[in-house]
């Protein structure tokens, strides 16, 4: 029980923020946060020591998030993201760190994250919040490495588009 508490203290913040920013609803985040830990405890027998605990925990959380997305609304189409991606033409002097105040930067990033299609948002958050690499994100999401790269590219383009408007 002590080991679990240690793990919990270490991962609770990042997991919670990943869920909160993925779901954008605190109530949903609370619910899935609790559910993620319950499933982790229930599935502890299946946990392989060689696997990274963060990856394993985020796999559980990601699956719950995707299920919630599927139940709540249809996913954004890839074509929609492509349109945003094609509009990525920004002058160098309009880079976000130069133009916007710090508060505005944070606000716009927050808005950009919320507007991202779910798969891209999750992938982006796994990179930004949890610091996962391409392989780890691919492992967590069950997607291929190139798919992960593509999602990250699209997400990055959308975020940048938010900063340039």
């Amino acid at each position: 029980m002590l080991a679990f508490e240690m793990l919990y203290r270490r991962h609770r913040g990042t997991l919670y923020r990943f869920l909160l920013r993925s779901l954008r609803q605190r109530a949903d985040a609370d619910e899935l946060f609790q559910e993620t830990w319950s499933r982790a405890v229930a599935a502890r027998e299946r946990y392989r020591v060689e696997a990274k605990f963060t990856t394993w925990l985020l796999q559980i959380a990601h699956n719950l998030v995707i299920d919630r997305f599927r139940r709540s609304r249809p996913q954004a189409s890839a074509e929609e993201a492509e349109v945003v991606f094609s509009q990525l033409d920004a002058p160098e002097d309009e880079q976000p760190d130069r133009v916007l105040s710090e508060f505005e930067q944070r606000r716009r990033l927050q808005l950009a994250l919320e507007e991202l299609p779910e798969e891209q948002r999750v992938t982006f958050l796994l990179r930004m919040e949890n610091g996962l690499g391409l392989e780890e994100i691919a492992e967590v999401t069950g997607a291929g490495r190139e798919t992960v790269k593509s999602r990250l590219r699209y997400a990055l383009a959308r975020v940048r588009a938010r900063f340039e408007t």
Binding site: D97, R106, L109, R127, G133, L134
Partner: peptide
């Protein structure tokens, strides 16, 4: 973005609030 610091957006992201459960 995949750099260790997360690039320009990585720096902004780290300045976001850190909500805790």
């Amino acid at each position: 973005l995949l750099d260790e610091d997360g690039g320009e957006f990585g720096a902004i992201y780290r300045r976001l609030s850190h909500p805790e459960p």
